[in-house]
């Protein structure tokens, strides 16, 4: 019975160039994930997925004045679902107090009808 030559087989394998370790440091790898947060983390702060409402951020007093409750999203607005069943989060949907003054009581009266 012929014994299997382990050492010989190993030597012949490591002589094959295709088994050399692959290093990707010299290659241009582009990551494109389905998850916006991962893309943002990978590509740094260049492409924020959802911009902050800069108007309100620069003028928070207006949005959060002590007297009036504002800027609650209009929950009576039906969500527009995309083909995959998920709501389309367009910027138009991101209604804020600056875009559309929405006093809390007014919204809630509208909903309660």
């Amino acid at each position: 019975m012929n014994s299997y030559d382990d050492i010989g087989a190993f030597k012949s394998k490591i002589d094959q160039e295709e088994l050399n370790f692959q290093a990707f440091g010299d290659k241009n790898i582009v990551m494109a994930s389905a998850w916006p947060l991962l893309n943002e983390l990978m590509h740094g702060a260049k492409t924020p997925a959802k911009p902050v409402n800069s108007t309100l951020a620069s003028n928070p007093k207006a949005a959060f004045a002590a007297a009036n409750v504002q800027s609650v999203r209009d929950i009576s607005t039906p969500q527009h679902l995309s083909a995959n069943g998920m709501p389309s989060s367009t910027e138009a949907e991101l209604k804020t107090a600056a875009d559309k003054p929405t006093e809390l009581s007014a919204i809630l009266k509208k909903v309660s009808r």
Partner: peptide, 8 residues
């Protein structure tokens, strides 16, 4: 209250 950031 001056530093509150309005989120999406």
């Amino acid at each position: 209250r001056e530093h509150i950031i309005e989120t999406p």
